[in-house]
Design a protein around this nucleic acid. Structure first.
Lengths: 105, 105
DNA sequence: GCTAATGATTAGTTATGACTTATGATTATG
DNA sequence: CATAATCATAAGTCATAACTAATCATTAGC
């Protein structure tokens, strides 16, 4: 992994997407998330670590618990990257269509 | 993999992202892409297959070559998905901030 | 037609990453 | 203070997917 675009790889795994979706719905503790999923607490913690490093979630301690909530930072960065791809794609597609039309003359 | 979100998994791999970025920059042949990357032509073809199946690229034959260009379809689907995540995230973050402010009273 | 180039596919190897079990560190509760 | 609960991390297993080497089919250019 290069360092960039960690967010995409973070959201590529289905279980991790489920973890993220739960946290996106409302802030939750690790135990909470674990109860909602068919994997161990250890797996959940490992997924949360990846999401944290991608700045997709943040945690704050509350007693013995750790409450996770969404961090807009990573999602924003991912969106920005995708937006630039998107405009590239539109530009390329436009010139492609134009070229095809010329072929049809 | 469920069937959805093929695009995200497709773009999760760094090499495949590089292939996609090259194609996004301008339409290219497989040989072109291979020359630009430190992997074999076989690997490039395999990556292109995944990108094709995710509808992120399309190819059209030109002589013995195969010219790949971007397919806006998959990128659009991915963007739509991310947009919904984005609004969820903003909503949750907003209520989180509001809750924190109440804590500060 | 023969040779070179392009690219897809197959088979096999290797690396990666998702998972469990086990453990330790911290905090809450009786 | 002892026990239970919460969570993170380490070590090890297993499945997957990224890769190379090899081959085949198609097209280009003498």
């Amino acid at each position: 992994m290069t360092y960039d675009y960690v967010q995409i790889s973070a959201l590529a795994d289905p279980t991790r997407r489920a973890v993220f979706a739960l946290v996106a719905e409302q802030p939750r503790s690790v135990a909470d998330i674990t109860r909602a999923l068919p994997v161990t607490q250890s797996a959940v913690s490992q997924h949360l670590k990846v999401l944290r490093e991608a700045q997709l979630v943040r945690s704050e301690p509350k007693g013995a618990s750790n409450i996770y909530h969404i961090d807009p930072a990573g999602l924003g960065r991912m969106r920005a990257w995708l937006d630039s791809l998107w405009s590239d794609a539109l530009g390329e597609f436009k010139s492609h269509v134009e070229a095809s039309q010329e072929d049809d003359l």
